[in-house]
Every structure is written in C-alpha cells, then in structure tokens.
Design a protein around this nucleic acid. Structure first.
Lengths: 118, 118
DNA sequence: ATAATATATGAACAGATGTTCAAATGATAG
DNA sequence: CTATCATTTGAACATCTGTTCATATATTAT
C-alpha cells in the first residue's frame, strides 16, 4: 500500500525492486516443469479421472464408461497422468488397473476445490 | 490389490463399483470450474507472474520487464488471473499494482513444487 | 498356431490458448 | 481542451491440446 515512484517509461523504474524479485524467482526450467504439472489438473477429463481414482483403483474401460468417452481417449489421458507421476498402474492379465500415485494429488486438488468453493 | 472379475466387454463389468464411484463424483459443473482454476497455473508465464507476486506487489510493466514480454501479453494474463480470483489490483494514478488475492495460491503452488521436487 | 479381448499408439482434425500488433480507455499534467 | 503515459481490449495468427478413428501390442484361451 505504500506510495512508490512511478514506473514504466524510463530506465529508472522500480528497477531495484524488479531486480530483487528476479533474483528470487526459481529457474525457468523449474517453473516450466511446474506449469506442466498443473496442466495435468487443467482439463476436466483428467480431473474427473483423478477424482474417480480418489474412490477406487479402476481399469481403463471402467473409467471410459464412467466418463462416457472412448477407451482410447482415456488411455491417452492416463499416459499423460502417468508421465506426470500422478497415477500408477498394475497389470492383471489383460486388464490394467490405475490408481493414484502420490498424496500430493489429493492435497493439490483439495486446495483447488477449497478455492473455488469460497 | 484384490482380485476382481474381469471388466470390459459385457454389461456386468465392475458395474456396481463404477456406479458407486459415479455417485461420489462432484458434479460436472464443479469439476469443470476446478479444471478452469488449474488451467491458470498451467502456463509458465502465469506461474512466473504468481511467483513474482509472492515477493512483492508489482505493476504491469514491472512484470512485463521481469518476464521479457510485452505489457499487452502481461495484461491479458493478469485479466485471466483476476477472473480466477488469484490476483487483485489497486490503482494509483496511471499505474495499476497487482498482488496475490488469496492464501490458497501459495499453498497450491507450494504443493505442486513439492511434487516435482521429489 | 489363431481368435478374442484390454490396452496402447499414431495420425488427423477441430477447437482452445498465448502472443503480438494496433487501437481504445483511463488518469494526470499543462 | 490537448498531450502523455500506463493499462486494457480486440483481432489475427501460429501453436498446442483433446478427441476420434484405425491400427498395433500384449495377454489369455482354444
């Protein structure tokens, strides 16, 4: 809330402030990876899959039936979730069962839900 | 890990399980909104903006300079973050200062960072 | 071996997203 | 009023994303 010298047009901006903030930012690569992680939560199909897995381990076609999408679509999404280490799987004969990989998933989704329910 | 009857081809699948899970899923609209929220975190420009605002309130052109993007690009992104209630702003003359809106932002981003740093 | 079934993968396409450029709005100073 | 500056907005465009369809792989049974 404190007053500050104005900003944009010349070199002497909030130059020192900007530089200080810049010094504290995590590296570009890390921030890129973080955005990639959140992209996984940023699609309603994938969010539904994760919520479903909150309740129970499920096979690919269970999820497909649950969401009303093709098995192929679900499989593509599961591959993404797997690559982000949000889900894991086990094979049982022809069937592959997926489940949550990690406790962070619940807490991230939970915090998000809290935010929108306020 | 328990064995189960197989799944996909007929009606009698994991039908009861699927129905139980279905009953516990939040409504489509809520899940859609949740995905929309996480989309906000799913872009490295916006993640950088949020991280910058962890450090300090900043004006639009500070952020533009910090990220090396046009002020227009930042403004577009801030509009999205504002509509998701992740940032707030105050006007001071010609300048508009943005800051974080809400404690959830830090905890969501923090949990995400923990996940990828494991 | 072949057939049947569950899942995975690749290509293609429509729709969404992020940036830039140009122009508009809002605020202050003269 | 006009001029100037910070920000916002709209349009255009290239890129990315999610789905479907067709096909491939993997497992089991015959």
């Amino acid at each position: 809330m404190e007053e500050r010298t104005p900003c944009c047009q010349q070199e002497q901006v909030h130059e020192d402030l900007v530089r200080r903030v810049e010094g504290r930012l995590p590296g570009d690569e890390l921030l890129y990876d973080l955005a990639e992680l959140f992209k996984m939560f940023g699609d309603s199909t994938r969010i539904k899959i994760l919520y479903a897995l909150f309740e129970s381990e499920l096979c690919v076609c269970d999820i497909a039936r649950l969401l009303g999408l093709t098995q192929s679509a679900i499989s593509h999404q599961l591959r993404l979730l797997k690559s982000a280490k949000l889900v894991q799987y086990r094979r049982e004969g022809k069937t592959v069962y997926y489940s949550l990989a990690d406790a962070h998933v619940r807490s991230i989704v939970g915090q998000g839900m809290e935010h929108i329910c306020e």
